[in-house]
Design a protein around this nucleic acid. Structure first.
Lengths: 154, 154
DNA sequence: TGTTCGAATGTTATATTGTAACGAACAACA
DNA sequence: TGTTGTTCGTTACAATATAACATTCGAACA
């Protein structure tokens, strides 16, 4: 397991870091994007675009279509503010948007709780294996389905 | 890359192996299941349940609902006759249904062509990392998005 | 200030993927 | 023959995702 010296953000701090990262990419930090980010970060589990749309709608007191949320989530994923969990069709906020990692998600089949770990030797191993097979610009998707500690008995 | 001594099947041979595996699991090899398996195996890329439903419908000369295909695909995945490619919402036939592997899919973002590699040291590394994090019964999902050799210029 | 232009968002429609519920067909077997 | 359980058909619907086009907003500049 690789050491991590960078900062883990949360709450206001995370929002600031996200904003800094997005503007650094030359994108705007709009009210809508802030609302989507706040909603995304408020979930404890990966949230679907529709979950987020619902939360944002409630928070803003008006209907926001999933469509708009998808656009913003795509932007976030591209800018490393969020990650898509492929095997759950859902999204999570990235806790350290400033630095780039291939992360590994552990998703509990029972409760949906998801944790992410970074293991650069594993992920670079996967990258290398892909390159050896002739794949260029590899973007690893590493997820593990299973049971979390809380659910392993039930 | 781990050596593989087992047999790689194709065509009739693959179908026989799949049938053997499924019946060994105590499940029936019905006409419908054979049709779905043939359709699945006929694709060169991962196929969606709806793609398969369409192919089976054409082959049988009558409408087969996606619903039925999903049921059978779920059965196949459970019995190791097929794999689900999570990041593509699609399925591929398993070329060696008799033996169990955590496989790694390489999916071309441009053409959709997918190859799979087996690398037991990587996949067991992922399993171990998950276990260390408290996850039980881990089932790794390892996929890589990128560009295949044919597409890397275009 | 006012205008213009492009980015961002709103709106509606639709495509794609996936489940649920229930009944009919069929095979295995008492 | 009746009974039972699995498989499959059928319909309906839920959830996820994209497309197309209109509108709004804000930055840049005359």
């Amino acid at each position: 397991m690789t050491r991590h010296d960078h900062q883990l953000h949360e709450g206001e701090s995370l929002k600031k870091a996200a904003r800094a990262r997005l503007t650094h990419e030359g994108e705007q930090w709009t009210g809508m994007r802030e609302s989507v980010f706040e909603a995304l970060a408020s979930f404890e589990k990966p949230a679907s675009a529709y979950d987020i749309a619902e939360t944002v709608s409630k928070n803003l007191g008006r209907r926001v279509a999933a469509n708009s949320v998808y656009r913003i989530l795509d932007l976030f994923v591209g800018a490393n503010l969020a990650r898509r969990v492929e095997s759950a069709n859902a999204y999570v906020a990235n806790q350290h948007p400033a630095c780039l990692h291939d992360c590994i998600f552990l998703i509990c089949d029972n409760c949906g709780q998801t944790v992410h770990i970074d293991n650069d030797s594993l992920s670079s191993g996967v990258r290398e294996a892909a390159k050896s097979a002739g794949f260029s610009a590899p973007r690893p998707v590493i997820e593990v389905r299973g049971r979390c500690t809380d659910c392993e008995d039930s």
